[in-house]
Nucleic acid binder design. Sequence first.
DNA 1: AACACTATCCATAAGTATAATATATGATTT
DNA 2: AAATCATATATTATACTTATGGATAGTGTT
Lengths: 297, 297
Amino acid sequence: MTTEPASSLADFIGGVSLRQLLYLRMAAHQPSFTAAAAALGITQPALSQALLEVERRAGVPLFEANGRHRRLTEDGRELLAFAERVLAEAAALRDRLDARARGEAGTLRVGMIDAASLYVLPDIIREYREQHPAVDLQLHVDATAALLTQLRTFELDLVFAIGPPENGIEGIEVLREPLHVYAPPGRDDPHAPPLHAEWALYESGSHTRAIIDVGLGRLGIAPLVTLQSGNPEVLRQMVALGLGWSVLPPAVAEGAPVLASRRGALVAQRSLFAMRRAGAAPHPRADEFLRLALAAA
Amino acid sequence: MTTEPASSLADFIGGVSLRQLLYLRMAAHQPSFTAAAAALGITQPALSQALLEVERRAGVPLFEANGRHRRLTEDGRELLAFAERVLAEAAALRDRLDARARGEAGTLRVGMIDAASLYVLPDIIREYREQHPAVDLQLHVDATAALLTQLRTFELDLVFAIGPPENGIEGIEVLREPLHVYAPPGRDDPHAPPLHAEWALYESGSHTRAIIDVGLGRLGIAPLVTLQSGNPEVLRQMVALGLGWSVLPPAVAEGAPVLASRRGALVAQRSLFAMRRAGAAPHPRADEFLRLALAAA
DNA sequence: AACACTATCCATAAGTATAATATATGATTT
DNA sequence: AAATCATATATTATACTTATGGATAGTGTT
């Protein structure tokens, strides 16, 4: 009967559980504690004690005697309203988490290199958007190195970039692209670039450029690079306009038919990997997106 | 690492406490679990375990490794948002309950008999309203029996009515009123009502009427009642118009000076009690109202 | 009507199971 | 070497059950 005046916020928060709020709601909605306890699947003393504990935490009586029943006080109704709100929030949260676990809601941030965005993934993006309209799909196009940095700093969930995956990143190969020499229109044989040839290549420092440099070296070519661009469309145009030679994946170079007949030697292969942080938390939406990508490849 | 799929709503609600939500919020706002634990005044393992327990209940990972720190997953941010909302609700509830405990907010339902409302309590009502403008003060005027019924059925918090208090009701005397015979204007001696006098009295069945009947009997009078009313103003008017005799408290009868000189014998005394349910939960607002009433008396 | 009789409801007590926390320690990362 | 988080174990606190008592309301009997 003597309720300790433990009415500090910390005491209240520290001691009250969602279960107790559930008990309170049931006790308020059922005709008696006994009926409420039965509906909750616990014994009547357990319910009585739990409610007394809530009273103690709240610092005010929540029930008062009414014959052999007990009824809510005005303070009790105040606390009941709180309980209803919190329990409704909890149910909504549970729904959200479940929807997210099913991949039906939430955010999916995918990073991809421009070649992927242009030639490989558009259909998959469209398909994913159709199948999961409630997912907030955010796409970022950048170079491999930048994408991997963003992946590491939790700014992206899934990255399609040139592999193989480095330390702390795990991935699966989605596509393997050959990289061929392409000659500018004219007399020269695409398979025999002259020594004085000028080259338009991917930017120095990029993953693809590193692969290309190694491959060209194996072919005995030390390219004279007069133009660098991270944009493969730019490189293709340079070649098509006769301004130099390049090394490109056919998917890029032959998108317009101009360069199809100008393909030269196979310089190297680059692999497009789908990558995530090693040991990252499960991500149903990323999993689904990747599933679509692998199914298409 | 292997989180059991305990992702049912009942499991979530059953296991999560407000304290864990507090822990989650602190862990999200502090740079490390260690710092958060220190800020919470608990040890780091206690915090780690509590958060792991929440993860288990939620069925999804809330944190993921980031170097030697851990950071929230998207699901974790979802749960954090829930925690913020609930904790804000809890703080607001605490404020409301505290304000109510101080008598500064809430509802106060006071019942009173009309005599009290007319002659005794108006100043107190005005004073209370001035001092506690945030309290929703609801006044009900009715006969004693009806008021006590409403008190018993929790429709009123405090009642000013004719005592003494019955079983299940406890009260304190606020005012003792004499009940005098009042004679109609004319030749008759107010102290000697004739046998054939016609009387206008409180309604049969009312507390005051019962007291009056007993008192008149002691004076050897068996009144011939030609008019009954629960409204003492009506009775006063009847007497003033010469239609009969009555028994009234001077506060009623002499409100207008008409009947002052027509006062006869003291029939009885009735006591105005402030009454509450016996064993009712503390009610700071009722207490304050009663304090004002007693101070004025 | 008054009385006991019975059923219902809630509180309390005591014992037991579960959960929360602290201390000590290990693994990993910077 | 320092910092961070996880794990193991012991201890304490909390939650629950069973058993029981007190109060109230309904029911039948004298």
